[in-house]
Simulated assay, not measured.
Amino acid sequence: MPKTCSEPLHRLQLHGPTMATRWAVSCDVPPVLDTNALCQALAEAVEQVDAQMSPWQPESALNQLNRAPVGDWLALPAQILEVLARALEVCRLSDGAFDPAVGALVDAWGFGAACDTPDAEAIRAARNAKRLPTPQALELDLAAGLARKHSPLQLDLCGIAKGYAVDRMCAVLTGHGVCHALVALDGELRAIGPQASGAPWAVALESPRAGLRAAHGVIELQDLAVATSGDYRHFVQVGQARLAHSMDGRSGKPVNNGVASVTVLAPRCMDADAWATALLVAGSGQGLALAHRHGLDALWLLRRGEALVELGSGRFAAAASAGTA
């Protein structure tokens, strides 16, 4: 049976490789907890997400759907169907700023599994391809566990899958009776409760300066998730332009709008992940309007020459006073 949170607790650190990066968990647990079983369950949870949703694994459920003929129903696992459903919803709510069907663009610009440099012919083909809007092009039958495409499209879930993996790890932890934990996978994090001491979990907001690993600030989490999307980790330099790995499906180009990073808070990490991507793509003007419309807690760091300017909504609005950093 899961242990209660009234027992004496000690700090446990667990981590492992996945998705070309690493997951990490800090948790306060009773000494009798089977840490080997917990670590194995966490690794299995995140690897299941990778196996289903990775564009780099040829037999992933994602790639099976991408290869499926238009009009044919395909049986899919419940996990990827849950993520696809939320991806389509955020696509609608963000007016297409978040678009899970940018896989061809991701590959063409050299950020995907197909190639690691931009391919001008592939870029033209991807930008000129005629297809239905993504929420119309993909139909889901969640009750039956099925999906089908109504027009050709190449899905890419990299803007939401890592956040979902964090949520799955949180479910594993609570299932083992863990009441105090911080789960991290790249720039996606989620806290279960506070630390055993009662203090919230303090996480660093990374400074979006290429080649520099430093903190821009600190965010405190308790029963809350945070995700950050930016242009400073994965990008290509074309002349004076920095082109981020995040794709704007509406223009057919990588993001290049002066937004260095966007950080979003949400109860679930996959929501924070998807909205951080959407608001990065939308830019500060449309993005701020979206954040206000949907009640999002979001912080933009905008490039203004050599300076960074903060812009915030929700609980970040007061802290972001449009100063430089």
Rank of each mutant, 00 (worst) to 15 (best):
T4K: 11
E7H: 15
P8T: 07
L9A: 09
T18W: 04
T21M: 09
W23Q: 08
S26W: 15
D28E: 06
D28P: 01
V29G: 08
T35P: 04
A37R: 15
Q40V: 13
Q48C: 12
D50C: 09
D50A: 15
P55A: 09
P55L: 08
Q57N: 07
P58D: 11
S60D: 11
L62A: 04
N66R: 05
P69G: 03
P69M: 05
D72W: 00
A78G: 02
Q79W: 00
L84R: 08
A87I: 01
L88P: 15
A97E: 01
A97R: 02
A101V: 09
V102F: 05
V102P: 01
A104T: 14
A104R: 15
L105F: 02
L105N: 10
L105M: 13
V106A: 07
D107N: 14
A108N: 14
G112D: 11
A113H: 05
T117A: 12
N128W: 13
P135N: 10
P135E: 05
G145A: 06
A147W: 07
R148E: 06
P152M: 00
P152I: 02
L153K: 13
L157V: 08
C158T: 15
A161C: 10
K162P: 12
A165H: 13
M169P: 01
C170P: 03
H180M: 07
A184Q: 15
G187S: 14
L189A: 10
S197Q: 01
A202R: 10
A204T: 11
L205S: 00
L205R: 09
P208E: 01
P208V: 00
R209N: 05
G217S: 09
I219K: 07
L224E: 11
L224S: 14
A225F: 11
V226I: 15
A227Y: 06
R233M: 10
F235A: 12
G239K: 05
A241P: 00
A241N: 14
R242W: 13
M247V: 06
M247I: 15
N256C: 08
N257H: 03
N257A: 08
A260C: 03
T263N: 09
D273Y: 13
A274S: 05
A276D: 02
A276G: 03
L279A: 13
G285M: 02
L290Q: 08
L296G: 02
L301P: 04
G314W: 07
A322M: 02
G323T: 07
